[in-house]
Amino acid sequence: MDKVDVRFPQQARPTANLPKNAQERAIALVELMVRLTALLERESAAVRARRPAKELAQIVKDKQPMTLVYEEVSRLLRVDRDGLASLPPELKTALKEATGKLYAATADNAEALRVGSAAQKVMVDTVVGVISRQQKAPSTAYAAHMGGGRGYSAPPSGPRTSAALNTRL
């Protein structure tokens, strides 16, 4: 038995407003799949257009609850086999078309995200390579590649390339 603190009454949790029968579920599912397909297409276009991260984060934020509701309503509809079988043919056709469009948008979205991720990785690897090369610069003022010989050249600046004066001579 759960303990309840009676000193601080808790608000009643809102109950989910899910469709009650197969027909309502199918209609809601078609509408939800149309909205989710449009959102996935918008996200794919934003990734390809390299929109700011804030905009992409908002799309993801909008997508998550829709996806959760889609999963729950579709599960409820799949479990109700008798209700699913008794749906009107035009509603079954609408479900099939919406499902096909959603799957196509999902595949396109996955490809856009994969390509965007690969492009981001190339850019990050390039920046890391440049920084690594800069950090491997010689730490002394006498370097063969600076000035073509044993001459003095000013050392590169930065924390890893500081020079010290030998005062023991």
Rank of each mutant, 00 (worst) to 15 (best):
S86L: 08
A28S: 14
P156N: 13
Q134K: 14
V124P: 00
A144S: 10
S132W: 06
A12H: 05
V73M: 04
R7D: 09
P138F: 00
L102C: 06
R35A: 15
A107D: 13
V6N: 08
A118L: 09
Q58Y: 03
T67Q: 10
K54Y: 02
V73L: 11
I59A: 04
L113V: 09
A144L: 12
P159R: 15
T140P: 07
S139Y: 09
V79Q: 10
G100P: 02
Q134F: 14
A137V: 07
Y152W: 13
L39V: 07
T167D: 12
L84M: 10
R114Q: 08
L169W: 06
A164G: 10
P52K: 01
V47D: 02
A118P: 02
M146K: 09
Q11T: 07
G83A: 11
T126L: 10
A144V: 06
A57I: 08
V47M: 06
A46C: 02
G116I: 03
A107Y: 06
Q134V: 12
A98F: 00
A16M: 08
V4D: 02
G158A: 02
L40Q: 15
S74W: 06
R81D: 05
M33T: 04
Q134E: 14
A49I: 00
K92I: 03
M146G: 00
T126W: 01
A110F: 12
M66K: 02
G149S: 14
V30L: 03
A22W: 00
E31I: 03
D125S: 05
T37K: 08
N21Q: 05
A85W: 05
P156G: 13
V122G: 00
Q23K: 04
V79A: 12
M1R: 04
V34K: 09
G83T: 06
G151F: 01
L40M: 15
L91D: 02
I27E: 11
K63V: 03
E31T: 08
L165P: 01
V34E: 13
G151M: 00
T15M: 12
K63H: 03
A53M: 12
I27M: 07
T140F: 12
R51P: 00
L32C: 11
K136H: 11
K3T: 09
R51H: 05
Q134I: 14
L68G: 10
L40A: 15
Y142A: 01
K20E: 11
G83V: 04
T161R: 10
N109L: 03
T106V: 12
A85F: 04
A94F: 01
D80Q: 06
V115K: 10
T126D: 11
E71N: 13
Q58S: 11
A85H: 05
A164I: 11
I131K: 03
S44T: 11
A104S: 14
V124N: 06
G129W: 04
D62K: 07
T37Y: 05
Y103R: 15
A154I: 10
